[in-house]
Amino acid sequence: MLEPSILTASLVHGLANGAVYALVALGLSLVYGVLHIINFAHGALLMAALYGVYFLVERLGLDPYAAIPILVPAAGAAGYLLHRWVVAKASRGREEAVLLVTLGIALVLENLAVALFRSDTRTIETGWAFAMVAVGPALLPAAKLAAAAGALLAVALLWALVRATDLGRAIRAVAKDREAARLVGIDVEHVFALAFAIGTATLGAAACLLLPTYYVSPQVGHGFVLIAFTIVVLGGMGSFWGAFWGGLLIGVVESLGGLFLGESLGQIGIFAIFIATLLLRPTGLFGRAV
């Protein structure tokens, strides 16, 4: 029954999902690369950003894509303050402390959402939910295609930011050697918070791209956080292109795993490939030697 057309369609959908996963994972990877922290609040921050889009669309009647220029800076600012005032203050850079702090933040955000918005699943209605685009033999919802394209664009912009701006240079300097960066006069604390802010800002973009084909509820972040971790490690922690290719790969593996093994057992593909990669190449696909 597995016709080639299904296989191709599944592949295309996997790639489209993977592009959004890559964007979500890039935020996480950037934070890891600079701060060396595993941010457990990443999923909860995505959830918060999704609520942000939801209210911009529902209350102000904005188009979800038009919300991007509002939500990205807003999420970035929130991320900056969150790092400066909470993560850095409470953890003082110690890694097991960061673990607890980000877990605590996730708990607070998720349950604030429960308290404020109840646990109803919320969706937005767009006029073009059923506009379909043929990509080869695959029929792709236009919103999904737009999300994938938007994610790729965001990745490119992020790359330019990291590569070609002073901020990017400072970030890379801190990522490489924070003490040396401090010595040459870089405000390391500020750069830490900026990296965290960029990580959160990518979630703002991801949320705007995701909501038209998905939904938001207080628990929605859980579905993305494990997958984002997997991608970051698979690609090589802190590696920019690692997270990007890792995202696409996981999108495809998830889709094909679901196709061949079913949507329940198929999830095993993600973790199996993850374990296999780490055992064969312990620093991830794009990671440098430890």
Partner: peptide
């Protein structure tokens, strides 16, 4: 009775514990 408020408080105290008992 506010749903979820207990876990919000729990999360905040967790962060404070880390802050004051490194």
């Amino acid at each position: 009775g506010v749903t979820g408020a207990n876990l919000v408080a729990y999360g905040i105290v967790l962060v404070l514990i880390v802050r004051f008992f490194p």
